[in-house]
């Protein structure tokens, strides 16, 4: 049996809102370690990998592995019914055909209970090996979101160039071009404002902004985004949770 209680419903709300436009049907795999999701978008370009570690929950028990096949659009509708500050408990039997969500208002005795029918979702789990990336950058997630949104007004593609002392985001379009250059900086008072670059090799990679627009929906999950890039391989965009992460693997674009 699964019983996982979030101190605040807002965390799961944010997670679902962050991924529901990238993937619709996915298995939430619950184990003693927490909840994982892995799913690839329909165009096979973007992969979502989520770990909500058991330490995120104020109470968590899961005696044996339980898979919850969820339609995220329906899940999002139900989860919006709860208040952000409510306790949220997920409950499922061992071989469930539904999952129960219990919202508890902390300021009153109101308890709201919803159940979502589960689906049989057949998706293959990919083993993604840890790899050495040419460059790892860490920057404020909100800045990355703004840069991508600004540059998406010009182009469908975002070029990212990384050297040891700068990160350059570029977009070239029919109506004009744009670029934003960032320099590494350490902010001691506000570490979440820091920008760091670890470089093994200079990077010049291009990505579809339509996918990045979905990735940056994770912005509210973490003050910082970690971007790991190697030339000509999928990049990893990561929002760290208090325990766990939301990762997106995005295949690059190559020049013809």
């Amino acid at each position: 049996m699964l019983e996982g209680k979030f101190e605040e419903a807002s965390l799961l709300k944010k997670v679902v809102e962050s991924i529901k436009d990238s993937v619709q049907l996915c298995n939430f795999v619950c184990s003693e370690h927490g909840i994982t999701v892995q799913a690839v978008d329909d165009s096979r370009v973007l992969l979502v990998s989520l770990l909500i570690g058991n330490e995120v929950f104020s109470d968590y028990r899961c005696d044996r592995n339980i898979t919850l096949g969820v339609d995220l659009k329906s899940f999002a509708k139900i989860i919006r019914c709860g208040g952000n500050d409510d306790y949220l408990t997920l409950i499922a039997e061992d071989s469930p055909d539904s999952v129960t969500l219990v919202f508890e208002d902390k300021n009153s005795d109101r308890i709201s209970e919803y159940s979502l029918k589960l689906m049989e979702i057949d998706n293959e789990f990919l083993k993604i090996d840890d790899m050495d990336y040419d460059s790892v950058i860490k920057m404020p997630s909100i800045d990355f979101q703004k840069i991508c949104r600004d540059l998406s007004t010009l182009s469908e593609s975002l070029q990212i160039l990384i050297t040891k002392d700068s990160i350059k985001f570029m977009a070239e379009g029919e109506t004009g071009n744009g670029s934003v250059i960032l320099k590494p900086r350490t902010d001691i008072d506000k570490p979440e404002q820091s920008i760091t670059v670890k470089l093994n090799n200079a990077v010049n990679s291009t990505f579809g902004l339509k996918y990045i627009a979905d990735i940056v929906k994770g912005t509210s999950l973490s003050n910082q985004i970690v971007i790991k890039i190697s030339n000509r391989t999928p990049a990893l965009f990561e929002y760290k949770l208090q325990s766990g992460y939301l990762r997106f693997y995005l295949a690059p674009k190559f020049e013809d």
Binding site: V45, E124, L126, G208, Y249, A251, K253
Partner: peptide, 14 residues
């Protein structure tokens, strides 16, 4: 001109 790659070229099973 850029061409979008698929994850399948990089991850088996994708």
């Amino acid at each position: 001109n850029f061409r979008q790659q698929s994850l399948a070229s990089f991850f088996s099973g994708a």
